[in-house]
């Protein structure tokens, strides 16, 4: 997902009897479905985990601008250009909302950005894959945003108020993202032989990386259990992945495209598809920096940040000058 394998600092999920009184009251509020607000008492682990998770989510939005931004200047029609630009702009907005949510927890946006650039925070593995053809823009909208929405919709109910409100806004805005992706795929799938080839190639390359977005199985993970107890994670990775596959198979069939998995078959008993696991060794390689585009992505972000520093400093300096002049005049 946009936030993958977030650690919680927990060795085990403690039951109520092992908690302090404050922790018990806190857990009871969460169990009652109350929202936790920034000024409320919260366990240090909850605060730290949320900073990691929301920060990672925000970083993913910002780094996620890059693979799609790669095609803004090459979009094939003026309307597609406008749509893609509006969509990538939305990602910047979503990053902004999420950084603000993280900031309510006592960390600044600049600090988070610097942690990302220092390699101390992560972003979603998916954005380390390249967008090689226009069909990739369709497939990213269809599959990547599709997978993201699957995770973000339940997160609207997350226990931390600012995170929940950011997710509500993001889900509302994101509803067009997946549809515009599928719209591109429909055009490609019904287009020329070359366009169909691009569409199938995009699905072939992005299918498993999309499945990886949900992260490895976490049904036995203590971090996952702790996050779920805190309601900052709502479903297990496997649940979401299954739901994603079940939803996507018929969409691929409608396009006349083949999902690159020979083991894909309907399982009546579980009421869902059986499918092949992605290659998790590839996933861990990508996370550790060896994906096809890790270096380019980070270089692009660092370059924008460093080359922009004179602008940020100058605008602040001008504002300070004006404020000083105003104070002097009073």
């Amino acid at each position: 997902m946009y936030a993958q394998m977030v650690k919680t600092d927990a060795n085990k999920v403690r039951d109520l009897s092992e908690m302090t009184e404050e922790e018990r009251a806190f857990q009871a509020r969460i169990d009652r479905g109350e929202k936790i607000e920034p000024t409320d008492w919260m366990p240090e682990g909850y605060r730290k985990t949320l900073i990691r998770q929301i920060g990672q989510h925000a970083h993913s939005e910002i780094v996620g601008q890059l693979p799609e931004g790669n095609w803004i200047t090459r979009a094939p029609t003026l309307e597609r250009k406008a749509i893609l630009l509006a969509k990538v702009q939305d990602e910047a907005g979503h990053g902004l909302y999420l950084y603000c949510a993280a900031e309510t927890l006592g960390v600044s946006r600049d600090e988070l950005i610097e942690l990302l650039h220092a390699g101390k925070m992560k972003y979603s593995s998916i954005f380390n894959y390249p967008t090689l053809t226009w069909a990739d823009i369709g497939a990213v909208g269809w599959l990547v945003d599709g997978a993201a929405i699957m995770n973000q919709v339940p997160l609207q109910r997350t226990s931390f108020g600012p995170y929940s409100r950011a997710m509500i806004r993001i889900c509302k805005e994101e509803s067009f993202h997946q549809r515009q992706g599928y719209d591109i795929m429909m055009k490609m799938a019904n287009g020329t032989a070359e366009q169909r080839r691009m569409a199938q190639d995009a699905l072939d390359r992005l299918w498993y990386p999309s499945l990886m977005m949900f992260g490895p199985s976490d049904k036995d993970s203590v971090h996952s259990a702790q996050s779920m107890a805190w309601k900052i994670k709502i479903n297990t990775n496997d649940e979401l992945r299954q739901k994603f596959v079940d939803q996507t198979v018929s969409q691929a069939e409608y396009l006349g495209l083949t999902i690159p998995d020979e083991n894909l078959s309907w399982n009546d008993e579980k009421g869902g598809y059986d499918f092949s696991e992605p290659d998790w060794s590839e996933f861990f390689e990508v996370l550790s920096g060896n994906g096809p585009c890790n270096r380019e992505r980070m270089e692009a972000r660092v370059k924008a940040w460093e080359e922009g520093s004179w602008v940020r400093d100058a605008l602040m300096a001008h504002a300070n000058k004006k404020e000083a002049a105003k104070t002097a005049a009073e």
Binding site: C100, R109, R169
Partner: peptide, 24 residues
């Protein structure tokens, strides 16, 4: 209240808010 943003001063905060929070 719709959210927050960063800006060097109030004037720019208004402009940024227009661009960030009224896109729709």
């Amino acid at each position: 209240h719709v959210g927050s943003l960063h800006a060097p001063d109030a004037e720019m905060a208004i402009k940024n808010a227009r661009d960030v929070y009224t896109r729709r």
